[in-house]
């Protein structure tokens, strides 16, 4: 059964207002419908401005949709408020693109990872500390104790992204949106983060929306892939189908533009 179902999702942003004449609008997400199954990694692939990031934010209620509905576990989350919204937040999390920006520079590692626990009133005192350490160990930041009092600027890019992942998983969510989680990282540490996310998916039974512009990364991470272009989903299917047998001309153009490592395997 699908954990998430979106129906005719639309998001329109107002852009500059003209002095005379009306408001102008830009449609970021246009009539998007898809389902994400439990324990699935669902890839949203597209170029900048395709609406993939907006789409991810709509699913987490970081943005309000202009129209359409989003069902999470059968409940329409576009109508949640107050307590219900807070308990929805507990079940969903997000991993951001830039680990240099997504951690508050004034927070220590402990502060950052503990914050969701504090807000959700999940654990306090020793229990809170134990959970934070457990989360850090889960993302293989060891010894965790030695990192607790560090600030983000004292960590490397890879460590920061691991802290951000620990923070996202400390409340044990069911669903995670990962927005280009490795695109700001060095090539040599990307694979480590990707593998970590796949392992965590298995260990914690996570469902994941994986947003990326990199088709090869999407193929490695996802079960199914949706290709977005100008706010619409132009192609959706299993990763093999989308990449080996693309139907839409845009998907084909995208695939043929990806630079290939020549003479690596087949020569």
């Amino acid at each position: 059964m699908a954990l998430i179902t979106t129906e005719n999702l639309r998001k329109v942003f107002p852009v500059r207002k003209r002095l005379f004449g009306g408001q102008e609008y830009v449609t970021a997400v246009d009539d998007v419908s898809f389902k994400i199954h439990r324990r699935e990694v669902f890839g949203l692939v597209g170029e900048s401005g395709s609406g993939k990031t907006t789409c991810g934010r709509l699913l987490l209620r970081l943005l309000e949709p202009t129209s359409g509905s989003i069902y999470y576990d059968g409940v329409d989350i576009t109508k949640l408020t107050g307590r219900e919204l807070l308990s929805f937040r507990r079940r969903v999390q997000m991993i951001f693109q830039n680990p240099y920006e997504s951690l508050n520079p004034r927070f220590t590692v402990y502060d950052s990872v503990a914050e969701p626990l504090i807000i959700q009133r999940i654990a306090d005192g020793e229990e809170r500390r134990r959970r934070v350490i457990e989360a850090l160990e889960r993302v293989r930041l060891t010894p965790a104790e030695s990192l607790l009092r560090r600030y983000p600027h004292e960590l490397s890019g890879g460590q920061r992204q691991r802290v951000a992942i620990a923070r996202a998983l400390v409340t044990e969510p069911d669903f995670v949106v990962a927005d280009e989680p490795v695109s700001m990282l060095d090539v040599s540490i990307r694979a480590g983060i990707l593998n970590l996310m796949l392992d965590l998916r298995d260990d914690l039974d996570l469902t994941m929306l994986f947003i990326t512009h990199d088709l090869a990364v999407a193929r490695y991470m996802c079960d199914r892939i949706a290709v977005m272009h100008k706010g619409r989903i132009v192609e959706l299917g299993s990763k093999e189908d989308v990449i080996e047998n693309p139907q839409h001309p845009y998907t084909r153009a995208l695939l043929s533009s990806v630079p290939r490592l020549h003479s690596l395997s087949k020569t």
Binding site: L86, R89, Q93, M94, N98, N104, E115, I119, Q120, R167
Partner: peptide
């Protein structure tokens, strides 16, 4: 507009917490 503010909101932080802590 910095992502850490959005990250706080994802964690469920309200306006007061974002203003005072972030």
């Amino acid at each position: 507009e910095r992502p850490f503010v959005e990250a706080a909101r994802v964690a469920g932080a309200g306006d007061r917490r974002i203003l005072l802590h972030h």
